[in-house]
Design a protein around this nucleic acid. Structure first.
Lengths: 202, 202
DNA sequence: CTAGGCTGCCTAAAACCTTTAGGCAAACGC
DNA sequence: GCGTTTGCCTAAAGGTTTTAGGCAGCCTAG
């Protein structure tokens, strides 16, 4: 009986490949076992359960993405850094849609805190050093950038922009132009009376 | 034998409630059957399969969301319309996280075209009538607004903003301020040489 | 170099979800 | 009232998840 040499890391990597091929939703402990030519039960020596597998794939994706982002940011600042980072996210999602989906998995707080997610937040913040923002505006801007990057990439990947006319590449470029301009002239709070608070769910 | 009075619509509604309670991922044909006190097989007279159930929940959510959005937009324009629409998305996601997640389900093109998704696109575009944008900038702006709304709401819901300091309500308001300002002064294309095209996946 | 133990993958089995096929009884139309 | 349609049922097969227990390959010690 030849041993397959399974490890949690190898399983996560195989799961990531599978996710890119058939979608993160379809990644299952059984499917990964099949890919290794091994019975399902064998995987449970390496994984606590199927959520554990999904979590490991998510962590792998977050880490890969952070590494690419760090590489892209090296030596750049201001608008160059902004577009470089934005393109890392977009390109990664196009090359590895399954892994990108995995990176959106909701992690429990402890796992999230130990993940590469915090590196992502720091990198977005580092971009803002090229603009003249102080706290708390810097945090607002970090959240805006995160929202635009994630929102755009998700919608584009989901085919949300397929119907209408202009090329998505053109839109992407113009959005980055707009963000750059916005960060240069970050507006002060609007002086009008605060709107009534939103209906908070009970 | 008392009939339960199942219809596809009722099943979708029950599925939506279930999604809000336990998460869209956990919504299963079996769970919905259980909720009606009925055997699983009975549901297959009303649903083609489990994907059909999920799709119906997604369509229900998209429709509810579009109705709320239309109500909120009535009689408003410019910045008021912008914040009203944005708050509809955010509030809906907070009140109905499961349905909001369902609304992100990837639909096949035909279903998507017949869904309330197109109403959403039209409403975002209607907001831009309050600003001075012409095509193709209007489409770019529609995509930016969609990205920010969806991206922010997703990240907030996923707990992505839980760690850092400023209140998310404050950030949300300031982001809407910033978008309003940006739409008033939508920048022309950056004249610098176009970046090399992104590595397109083969 | 061989004996022991550890580890890795196995078989077996229970629980649950999905989906199809076929049956019986309630509801509806005439 | 009678027949047809329809709605929910039982039965069953196939897939995924997870646990328990076993056997053999590999590593280490003597």
């Amino acid at each position: 009986m030849v041993r397959a040499g399974l490890t949690a890391e190898r399983l996560a990597l195989a799961g990531a490949e599978l996710a890119d091929e058939v979608g993160f939703e379809q990644v299952t402990v059984s499917a990964v076992a099949r890919r290794f030519g091994v019975t399902v039960a064998s995987l449970y020596s390496h994984l606590r359960n199927s959520q554990d597998l999904r979590t490991r794939i998510a962590l792998l994706a977050l880490d890969e993405l952070a590494t690419r982002a760090a590489d892209a940011l090296a030596g750049r600042s201001g608008r160059d850094a902004l577009t470089a980072l934005a393109n890392v996210y977009r390109d990664y999602a196009r090359e590895h849609p399954g892994r990108y989906a995995a990176a959106q998995l909701r992690l429990d707080p402890a796992t999230a805190a130990a993940s590469a997610g915090v590196r992502h937040a720091r990198m977005i913040r580092s971009i803002l050093r090229g603009y003249d923002l102080t706290e708390p505006d810097q945090t607002h801007a970090v959240r805006l950038l995160g929202s635009v990057f994630h929102g755009y990439v998700s919608l584009e990947l989901a085919g949300g922009f397929d119907h209408s006319a202009p090329d998505t590449q053109e839109t992407w470029t113009r959005i980055l132009d707009a963000l750059d301009a916005l960060l240069h002239t970050w507006p002060p709070p609007d002086p009008r009376p605060a709107p009534p608070p939103p209906p908070t769910p009970r």
